[in-house]
């Protein structure tokens, strides 16, 4: 590999690293929002409150 190829490889690694992390965060966020929406709805409606307190 020539020196310019190594430089390209370094740059590509940085962009790929950040891209992969952003994809991971996006997937985590989607799952988090789905679970939050489900829980907030059930807690608000009071259907899942423990018997002694509802």
């Amino acid at each position: 590999m020539s020196k310019i190829d190594w430089l390209w490889l370094g740059g590509a690694a940085v962009w790929l690293g950040f891209g992969a992390y952003l994809v991971l965060l996006a997937r985590r966020q989607a799952s988090l929002e789905r679970r939050l929406a489900g829980l907030e709805t059930s807690v608000r409606s009071g259907n899942d409150l423990p018997a002694e307190e509802s």
Partner: peptide
């Protein structure tokens, strides 16, 4: 995102 995770954890405890 970490703040949203904390909210989820809190809701799970309430639930």
């Amino acid at each position: 995102q970490a703040l949203a995770e904390q909210r989820l954890e809190r809701l799970q405890i309430l639930n």
